[in-house]
Amino acid sequence: MNFLASIGRVFLSFLAGTGRLSVFAGQAVSHIVRPPFYLPLVGQQMLRIGYFSLPVVGLTAFFTGAVLCLQIFIGGNRYGAEVFVPQIVVLGIVRELGPVIAGLMLAGRVSAAIAAEIGTMRVTEQIDALTTLSTNPMKYLVVPRLVAAVISLPFLVAVADSIGVLGGYVVGTQSLGFNGAVYMKNTMDFVTNGDILSGLIKAGAFGFIIALMGCYHGFNSKGGAQGVGAATTSAVVSASILILAANYLMTSLLFSE
């Protein structure tokens, strides 16, 4: 009985949390289209979310492409299928690994930073101060981050895709004996615009998740430094899980022919 009751409690609090998150997301989105707009803040956030994430995203994408190439070569070798390495690498990067790796890295880098910043503003009453200065915190804090993340992520993923393919190319030509020109030709001939586009659409959705989770947990943090720490952890964990779940969902929707 006790056991069932505690399952019930967990389930109810899960539903309540989902409800609160949906209301928060709905409010945030409705504020995107209503003035006033804080365009300079969007630019500032794009710099922080997009531009300053380039090194992390580039490095992780490079090594992901490299290791993917290596594994596919080793695996394909057993069936004499190693000629298909460039095609499989580019497909894997563009459709799945580019967006997911970039998304997860930004869940760590950006969701955490947003949650810590907004959480600190919450516990030091800066958010209340915004309200008393006739400025809507949703519009001033949440909307610029959401918009900047949704715009920045596709660009970051485009960069991640290119560098990921480059990582495969470097390993393929330097240590696996592929001819550089052939590797590139096979890659380019095989990949379609649809493949690339699907990854960029995913990227936009991941950007939304990353900023939303950072803002939501930051906004709802309570207590002092400990509360902000907890909010940061929750933001990263929930953003990562949601990204992977959304990725599966979108793959099954986008490639359901």
Binding site: M121, T124, E125, Q126, D128, A129, L130, T132
Partner: peptide, 11 residues
């Protein structure tokens, strides 16, 4: 209104 917050709450 103008409000002076307990901890300052400066941005």
């Amino acid at each position: 209104f103008g409000m002076l917050f307990q901890g300052g709450a400066l941005f």
